[in-house]
Amino acid sequence: MDKRKIISAGLAILSIVLFIFIWYLCTDVLELVPARTLPSPEKVLDSFIKKFHDKNPDGGTLIEHTLASLQVALTGYLWAIIIGVPLGIFMAWNRNVDKFVRPLFDLLKPIPGVAWIPLMIVIFGIGIKSKAAVVFCSAVVPCILNSYTGIKQSKEVHMWVARTFGATRLQMLWTVAIPTALPHIMTGIRVALSSAWVAIVAAELLGSTKGLGFMIQQSRGIYRTDIIIVGMLAIGICGIILSIILSFIEHLVVKGRK
């Protein structure tokens, strides 16, 4: 058993080392690809570190851009949770609401968040508001969807028990349906987070003055592929950190309810 674990860890390290080695080989050593197409790992690392304090070439440090992106993404995301989760619960709980809202929701659901960008710019102008609205549009769908399925899947038997014991409908919702649905709701919130993060990158690529998407966009036309890759890495790392924080919260909430 232990031997297997060691081999596994060895393979994992090998794969990363191999990846970086091949990258290095293709760029710095053999110069198979020019730096404008793919800068060497050394250059990317160098630019990454430099970008923490260097405003060039895009007018902001990595931290500033990251904070700008986070601010907008989280604003839209929180609104999506505040509105989406109760709406999903309400839709699933109330049959009449379900019948009326569900078709409408099905109609709007397949439209990707990015498609709303031009319309949101027209309505809210180019600023935090329109981008937050785009994030909201992308993040609200999984929030609604998962809360809805969560409530719908709460076991009939539990409901009967609650009713037999004379619970009111509100009590049933609050003490039976929502706790049962909580894992589902949390999944929705987690999916929504990655949707939100995708949406902000798209919105920033299309019109902004700050943010990681903007940083990438500025570097495009001016042959700074290294900064593009730095931006991608930063986006990825932020995504990971956000989901770690969220799963920590999820752990607390879901466990606490049990």
Partner: peptide, 25 residues
């Protein structure tokens, strides 16, 4: 164990963020 680290590297980067570099490539 071999592919996981590589996969975990691309997984968190949204495809949209690849657009600029894919245009260069």
């Amino acid at each position: 164990s071999f592919l996981r680290p590589l996969y975990e590297m691309i997984r968190p980067i949204p495809p949209i963020a690849w657009i600029p570099i894919s245009i260069v490539w």
